[in-house]
Nucleic acid binder design. Structure first.
Lengths: 213, 213
DNA sequence: GTAAGTTTCAAACGATCGTTTATGGAGGAG
DNA sequence: CTCCTCCATAAACGATCGTTTGAAACTTAC
C-alpha cells in the first residue's frame, strides 16, 4: 500500500469509530487494526491521539466551511433582505453538497460535531474556535438583521437554543431514527427530518420571545 | 465516619465528577479519593462502575419523576384543555421544586441527562427507558392533543427537537452564561433563560411543520 | 550500486484502568 | 467470651491504554 494511503486509511477508520463510540472510548489499537495499518503509524504520521482527533475534524470542516463562506457571499449579493430560513438553509445545503448523498458520512460528521461539544475535549473546542471563529461571527452578523426586534441578550440565547436543537439531533441521529421506527413505524427520510428541524429552529428563533403569541 | 455515609459520599462525588468530565473520563480512583473512601468501596457497595452510574441516575430521577407524575395528575383534573406551555412548565417546575435553589445540583443533573444520551452507555439508556418509560409515554399522550394536526411522525421528531434544546442548554448552562457575559454584557437570570427557553420550545413545537407560516 | 531519507513493523515501556483478594477491626447476638 | 456479619483497608491482579524504540523494508537520488 502506498504511503499516502496510510494517512487516509487512518482518518477514515478514526472518523467512523469516533462517531460511533466517542473519543475516549476508541483506542488507537482499534483504529489501526480497522485501518489495516501498524499501531505506531498514528504517532508517526500525526504525533498523538489528540492531533489525530483534530486532523479528523480538519478534513471534515475545511471544505464545509469553505462552502458555507461561498454561500454566505452569494446571499449577501442578493438585493432582498436575508431571512432566517435562507440562513439556516445555507448550513443544511452545505452539508448536503460537501458530503453528497453519502448519508453515512454526513451523519458521522454530525455526531462528531455533537461529540466536540459534549465530550470533554477542551483542546478540540479551542482548535475549532480559533480556526473557524471568523465564519461563525460572520454568520451571526447576518442573523441579527434577520431577527428584528430581538435584543442582544435574546439573540444570544435564541441562537444557542437553535444550535442545541441541531447538535443534539445530529449527534443522536441514528439512535433517534431507530427510536422513531419503534414509536411511529417510520424511520423518517433525511429530507423530512432536516426540513422539520429547520422549521423548528426558525419558529423558535422568531417566536421565543413571544411564547403566548 | 458512619457506615451509611460511605454510599452517599460516593454518590455525591460521582455525580459531580461524572457531570464535569463524563463517565469514561472519570476513574473510580478519582471518585473514591474525592469522596474520602477506599477504592474498593465502590465495587463493594455497588458491584461495578456501571452499577454506580445507574445508582447516580436513580437517586436523581426517582424524586423528579414522582414530582412530574404528581403534577401531571393535577393537570389532568383541571377542566380546561391542556396546552403546550403548561406541559413544559410541569418539567421546569419539577426541576425547580426537587432541587430547589441549588442551581449547581440542577445543572449537574441536566448535564448528566445529556451525557446519558451522548456517551455510549447503552446499559444506561436501557435502564432509564425501562424504569421511567411509563412516565414518558404518559407525558407524550398528553402532549398529542395539545398539538392538534401533527402526525405521529411529526410529534416524535418535534418533541425530540425540543428535548434536545433543553438538554443542550442545561448541560452547558454555566459555559453558556459565561459566554453571554462576554457577548452581551448580561449573565441572564435563571428566570429569563428558562422563560425564553420554554418559549423557544413551545414555538418550535407548534410551528415546526409550517416553516413559512 | 550505494547512500540517504522515509515509512513500516514487532516489541516493549510506563501508566492507568476496573476489579478482586486477604486481612482485620467494629459491633451486635447468643 | 465467642461467634458471626458487615465494612474498611492495603495490596495486588490482569487488562488495556498512548507512546516510544530500534531495526527492517522500501523509496528516492546520484
Amino acid at each position: 500500500m502506498a504511503q499516502k494511503e496510510t494517512v487516509e486509511r487512518i482518518l477514515d477508520a478514526a472518523e467512523a469509530l469516533f462517531s460511533e463510540r466517542g473519543f475516549a472510548e476508541t483506542s488507537l489499537r482499534t483504529i489501526t487494526s480497522t485501518a489495516g495499518v501498524n499501531l505506531a503509524a498514528v504517532n508517526y504520521h500525526f504525533g498523538s491521539k489528540k492531533a489525530l482527533i483534530q486532523a479528523v475534524f480538519e478534513r471534515f470542516l475545511e471544505p464545509l466551511v469553505a462552502d458555507i463562506e461561498r454561500r454566505l457571499s452569494e446571499l449577501e449579493q442578493q438585493p432582498e433582505a436575508i431571512n432566517v430560513e435562507s440562513l439556516l438553509k445555507v448550513l443544511s445545503s452545505a452539508i448536503y453538497e460537501v458530503h453528497g448523498r453519502n448519508t453515512n458520512r454526513a451523519t458521522a460528521f454530525m455526531r462528531l460535531l455533537g461529540l466536540a461539544y459534549t465530550q470533554s475535549q477542551a483542546h478540540l473546542r479551542n482548535y475549532i474556535a480559533q480556526r473557524y471563529g471568523e465564519t461563525f461571527q460572520r454568520y451571526a452578523g447576518l442573523l441579527k438583521p434577520a431577527l428584528p426586534g430581538a435584543t442582544d441578550q435574546e439573540l444570544f440565547w435564541h441562537t444557542h437554543f437553535a444550535l442545541g436543537t441541531a447538535i443534539f439531533t445530529m449527534s443522536n441521529f441514528d439512535a433517534l431514527r431507530a427510536m422513531a421506527v419503534n414509536d411511529t413505524g417510520h424511520r423518517g427520510s433525511v429530507d423530512f427530518i432536516v426540513s422539520h428541524l429547520t422549521g423548528f429552529m426558525a419558529a423558535g428563533l422568531r417566536n421565543a420571545s413571544h411564547p403566548h403569541r
